[in-house]
Amino acid sequence: MSSDALVTVSGLHKSFGDVEVLRGIDFEVRRGEVVAIIGPSGSGKTTMLRCVNLLERPSAGRIEVDGQVLCEQQADGSMSFSGKAEIRAIREHVGMVFQKFNLFPHFTAVENVIEAPMAVRGMSRQDANARAFELLESVGLAHKADSYPLQLSGGQQQRVAIARALAMDPGLMLFDEVTSSVDPELAGEILLVMKRLAQDGMTMLVVTHEMGFAAEVADRVLFIDHGVIVEEGPAKEVLGDPKRQRTRSFLRAVLERAPMVEDGMDDDGQ
């Protein structure tokens, strides 16, 4: 294990009932790295991501995040997991952005962003508001601070969701197919925010179908199929000249429709 690995996953297995979705996954994410996870639907990539912050409990394996062991297998084969308080402590530093946004619909954008810092860090409303406005500004939505989620487009909602996750000042961000529920023409504004985040040095684990984004922003790419990592390596290699046949055929099927990341956008991201 490298000394600057933020996330270390070894021997990860996960079954849902009789169905084994993850069949032995090993990988690392180093500080400051952007790792893209690609693969066909049903491959287990989302499940794998959700294991990293224990939204899913692995059936077997060891997961370590920022020096904290989240789960590991005991000598007798049973799994032990961190306690609730420890998991919460880890989640303070691991932000997650969901495919379906999961914004709190009865709160405005700014209220969504200040909720956790106030509840968990005990920040004063004033400080939390100031920070929230900064973050909404950085995703281009300061002017929509008092809007409710249902008044916003999908792209705008997802950007608020990113701001909400960033409000906790995480050291690691998990992205679960964050553009899949959004109209294609709005995906660009989200990817641009993520690109900037990467450029600022955020450690990111991104499950995505956006190959253009992966090629441009990711340092490394993991290709997962049927619960195992089929190929991994530098983005340029895995996406440009894959070694495995399965990777090639997957990319061929997907790349026909890969949108490129927008380079310019106005304040609203429209």
Binding site: F104, E115, V120
Partner: peptide, 24 residues
């Protein structure tokens, strides 16, 4: 998803039941 978002923001169950889940 509301539960998951609240959990990933490190909110305690008591807090998010009161602020997020029950109002909805």
């Amino acid at each position: 998803g509301q539960f998951e978002a609240a959990e990933c923001l490190a909110m305690t169950r008591r807090r998010y039941m009161r602020r997020i889940i029950i109002p909805q």
